[in-house]
Design a protein around this nucleic acid. Structure first.
Length: 311
DNA sequence: AACCCCAGCAACCGCATTTAA
DNA sequence: GTTAAATGCGGTTGCTGGGGT
């Protein structure tokens, strides 16, 4: 174990050693016994009683992430769990603890690690495809319209209980500024329509997640005072399609993006964004890809048809 | 066999929020 | 109402093990 940065031993305010690093079975046993006696609380008393030389935070984390009996330890995320995480991340942002409440047996750390791995995987795929596409002239000639939200009128913002909620919602909306209509084509939705419920015109029936929510708690927004615009139905399977070799191969195809109507990356034709059709703003695709679209932007897009279904 | 790379995971840190005195 | 302690959360780091070369 490399402990150059992560010191194994620290001292608290009265000079007692604080142990760090991997937990031993004996420590786990002590912690479990403590929880059996007193419940999952009073974490700091574990050290003050001399039971363990761990901080209360460390004890709580160990219990929550590893020792709770209901945890699914060593079980990979199922396809349904993956879809759930993708959907909820789009709706809530990086609220891992909140997302984990919808996944029995999973911890916020599990969800966070899953998402992190997934993001790295997608980033690598996009980087690979970007590198390959840089070898043709298509890339350098593509222009896209600047995102509409870069030039929004100033309107009173919706109220949030915290800045982090606001940020995560804004992120979700940024990631979800398009949705599928009944014909499964991409429609750009005015960003302000996503931000300001009074102008929201989306079909609320389209906002249902595609897994069975009847067995689950309602989303917290339905229980609390928070009321921000719902995000259009996500199409998480697209992210899975992203990881297919077939998809990757086609990223270098100049006509590939034409399949998304109206096309956002078509040369010499600006992406039409409602209310912004008159704009002549364009940005270089490199800049656009680097600076604007979060990696999960594509989560909102339907899976591509299989090659056999292509016209 | 040795080395490298990477995904998955565990655990720490800093900050925010909640609770108790 | 104020303050300190406890708890919770999200970001990040770094170890481990497996697969590829």
């Amino acid at each position: 174990m490399m402990e150059g940065k992560r010191r194994m031993v620290q001292y608290d305010e009265v000079g007692d050693q604080i142990k760090k690093g991997p937990w031993k079975a004996e420590e786990d046993e002590v912690l479990i016994n403590h929880v059996k006696k007193y419940g999952p609380r009073d974490w700091s008393s574990i050290r003050s009683k001399g039971l363990l030389r761990r901080t209360g935070k460390s004890c709580r984390l160990r219990w929550v992430n590893k020792l709770r009996p209901e945890l699914k330890t060593g079980v990979k995320f199922s396809a349904e769990e993956e879809r759930t995480v993708i959907d909820l991340q789009a709706q809530f942002g990086n609220k891992w603890a909140r997302i984990a409440t919808y996944l029995p047996g999973r911890t916020d750390n599990d969800v966070k690690n899953f998402w992190s791995s997934r993001q790295k995987r997608l980033a690598r795929i996009l980087q690979t495809s970007s590198a390959s596409s840089s070898t043709n002239s298509y890339k350098s000639t593509v222009q896209v319209q600047a995102p509409a939200f870069l030039d929004l009128p100033s309107v009173e913002a919706p109220k949030f209980s915290s800045s982090t909620d606001e940020e995560s919602v804004a992120k979700s909306q940024t990631c979800s500024s398009s949705h599928m209509d009944d014909n499964d084509t991409i429609k750009m939705v005015p960003f302000q329509d996503l931000v300001y419920p009074s102008t929201l015109t989306l079909d609320q029936n389209a906002l249902q997640l595609d897994y069975d929510t009847s067995q689950k708690k309602p989303f917290p927004e339905q229980e609390s005072h928070l009321s921000f615009p719902q995000i259009p139905q996500l199409q998480p399977d697209f992210s899975l399609a992203l990881e297919s070799q077939d998809f990757v191969n086609r990223l270098g195809d100049p006509n590939f993006l034409d399949e998304f109507e109206p096309p956002c990356f078509e040369p010499d034709r600006s992406c039409q964004i409602a209310g912004r059709a008159e704009s002549n703003d364009t940005v270089d695709l490199d800049t656009f890809i680097t600076d604007f679209p979060p990696i999960d932007l594509f989560d909102d897009i339907e899976p591509l048809p299989s090659p056999s279904e292509w016209p």
